[in-house]
Design a protein around this nucleic acid. Structure first.
Lengths: 196, 196
DNA sequence: TGATAACTACCGGTAAATCGGTATTGCTTA
DNA sequence: TAAGCAATACCGATTTACCGGTAGTTATCA
């Protein structure tokens, strides 16, 4: 449905030629390995591969492809991640045909393009400082999920064959990194920041 | 974009006439108050009004309108809620034109229509028994959010001008209702069940 | 190969949460 | 209006979490 919408919005404009379209990530990647494209309009919600992960995969195949992210929603953290991975533009699906063509031409010229809504979201996320994901280690992530499952320090220690004291240390580091002071809010912000 | 996609998918079929389309809930409701329609294709993610809340609002205006829910994603709880509110069908946005027309005609005849993917999700949710939302009282919900904010029992008691012992009772009732044994997992399942 | 990060571990102490059981009061509604 | 639920509250006891500080051993990667 979204693809049909895209095609309709772009069909009026002769500056844009739609070469192909796919419903999932893997098909897209195999196509791009054998064929060329200037711009990829990339939906963030794909059935097989995460949109964020798609970006480096595409750029590995051909680094000069301009990728424009596309999503219904607007979570700052996702947009931030996409930009870090190398998208050149980002739009919401309520975009007009005009804006869509603008975005494509701008990105094709080597510029960036973010719709006004996205710019607002990015600006907000900078002021709120909510976009910065703390870096958790593998062990910390693991223990985080076990805490979320309701397991106590002792249970976790048993499960990982380490000392409860060690688990407590990880626990404290987690809370420090996420700037909270107990497990309840730890889980809440971990989920908000998509760390779980 | 989605609307354009819909229009394209439906334009081939002469059984369906698109009367109007809107980008938000309020415009839709004001239109429906003065005009008629057989079927409403309702996106769950609207900028102003929650899709679930839209359903009773629409049915209050004209109870014989057939509503078909539409979303990119597929969270069982949302689909369940929509059905409870009275939608007659539910589709994902990767639906084909053919299936879309099928759904519309079936619902127009008074039948239900759920795409195979949705049926699978519903079946899974029944077996996993994850769809049953425990009923929390107003006070419990409030305290739940305060716990999620990392506040301790004492802080919450101060804030609500009640005894810490009372807060503790609410806490225990919350944990019992959500079938968990500590605050961390309480928050996790509360978020999973969209109670926060 | 040397520095940095990750993982491990400990002590002592305080604060908070959890458990089990009980009970009164007010509101709501069948 | 009686039953049921919601909100309030308490006691005693145990467990778990949280804080501050410290430190040795492995990876790992530049």
């Amino acid at each position: 449905m979204v693809i049909e919408g895209l095609k309709t919005l772009l069909s009026d404009d002769k500056r844009v030629l739609i070469k192909n379209q796919f419903m999932n990530g893997t098909d897209t990647l195999t196509y791009l390995e054998k064929n060329s494209a200037d711009i990829v309009l990339l939906d963030v919600n794909l059935p097989d591969i995460n949109g964020v992960e798609m970006v480096p995969k595409i750029l590995n195949i051909k680094s000069n492809i301009g990728i424009i992210g596309l999503s219904t929603y607007s979570e700052p953290s996702i947009i931030n991640q996409m930009i870090k991975k190398g998208v050149k533009g980002y739009l919401l699906k309520n975009v007009t045909g005009e804006e869509l063509v603008d975005a494509i031409t701008q990105v094709h010229q080597g510029d960036f393009y973010f719709s006004s809504e996205i710019q607002k979201i990015l600006a907000d996320s900078v002021t709120q400082e909510s976009g910065d994901l703390p870096k958790l280690t593998r062990r910390e992530k693991h223990i985080l999920t076990l805490i979320a499952e309701g397991k106590t320090t002792n249970k976790i220690a048993e499960e990982l064959f380490i000392s409860p004291l060690t688990v407590e240390t990880h626990r404290r580091n987690l809370m420090q990194k996420l700037e909270v002071s107990n497990a309840a809010s730890l889980i809440k912000v971990a989920i908000e920041k998509h760390l779980i």
